[in-house]
């Protein structure tokens, strides 16, 4: 029973930790499938976390906050698209520029609205859904936030379906593989890329808002802490396929949750606890090395398209 409960809490924590990274990574998948690497991901998540928190605080509604966060992500996605699709400038640099801009905006607005107080302001976060809570192990696992359910049960299947079963998904993949041919076939390359990057931005911001609205009920400087970069690694690991990206997010989430459990158990280990904190990142790199050997990048990734 003790083992079963340990596994149950571990699984529950895995799903919780994986949620923001999963949402962001699915967003990145759309962007990259259309041919644009969006390094703005970290900043879009950060601003999404702030906008979600701030709007929820002001409006008193967590759902309004979530919606505002998603809108902020879509707007930054459109900005990213303007630079990489319309202007066709270097995707690495413009993405990092967006990250810097979004982080700066979030911190600036946070300071203006909340000052530099020592105790970070907080709001009551989303409640966890308690399904089947009377069944011991299953109840523990299913004790999750609504956004976790939305992420795993709606966003992933719908993304997979859109990508592989709709003509829109075919168009996204076409403009990311061979924009010239897609253009010749009558697809509006620019419009498809704009839509994919904007939608992706919305998902990234949703991932950020999960942290501020569900997990913490607060906004802090270190709230994203490199999760966006992990998401980018998971997209490659998942070979740009939403279901495999989900698998990757579970591996990362599992490693992270395990180190959380080990810390919580307060074991006196001869190695510093930072080893466990670094472990998920090291595992991600190893996973990348293993999966990266067969990674088939979208052929037009990083290449701007211009009609001649």
């Amino acid at each position: 029973m003790v083992v079963a409960m340990f596994i149950a809490t571990l699984t529950a924590a895995t799903l919780r930790v994986a949620t923001p990274i999963l949402l962001a990574a699915i967003g990145e998948t759309f962007s990259e499938r259309a041919g644009v690497l969006n390094l703005g991901i970290e900043g879009i998540m950060f601003l999404g976390a702030f906008v979600g928190f701030y709007t929820a605080d002001v409006s008193g509604s967590l759902w309004v906050g979530l919606l505002a966060a998603i809108m902020s992500g879509i707007l930054l996605g459109l900005l990213m698209a303007f630079f990489t699709v319309t202007l066709g400038v270097n995707q690495h640099v413009s993405g990092l520029g967006i990250t810097l801009l979004a982080s700066g905006l979030a911190l600036y607005a946070f300071r203006l609205n909340y000052g530099g107080s020592a105790t970070p302001p907080s709001i009551p976060p989303f409640e966890q859904l308690t399904l089947l809570e009377n069944i011991p192990v299953l109840g523990t696992i299913l004790n999750q936030y609504m956004l976790t359910y939305i992420g795993f049960l709606l966003v992933v299947p719908i993304s997979w379906w859109v990508m592989y079963r709709t003509s829109f998904g075919l168009k996204i993949r076409a403009v990311g593989e061979n924009p010239e041919a897609a253009d010749a076939a009558g697809i509006n390359v620019f419009r498809i890329r704009y839509i994919a990057i904007a939608a992706g931005g919305g998902l990234m911001a949703m991932g950020g808002a999960f942290l501020s609205l569900s997990q913490l009920g607060a906004f802090t400087h270190g709230i994203i802490a490199g999760r966006g970069w992990v998401a980018i690694a998971l997209v490659i690991f998942g070979n740009w396929n939403p279901s495999k990206v989900m698998l990757g997010s579970l591996i990362f989430g599992g490693t992270y949750a395990l180190q959380l459990r080990l810390q919580a158990m307060g074991l006196q280990l001869p190695i510093p606890y930072e080893t466990f904190l670094a472990l998920p990142y090291i595992v991600t790199i190893i996973a990348l090395v293993i999966a990266g050997r067969q990674a088939s990048y979208p052929a037009a990734l990083l290449k701007p398209y211009r009609r001649e």
Partner: peptide, 9 residues
């Protein structure tokens, strides 16, 4: 790009 970002963390 990805590995250098991860090694930063």
């Amino acid at each position: 790009v990805v590995t250098t970002l991860l090694t930063n963390s």
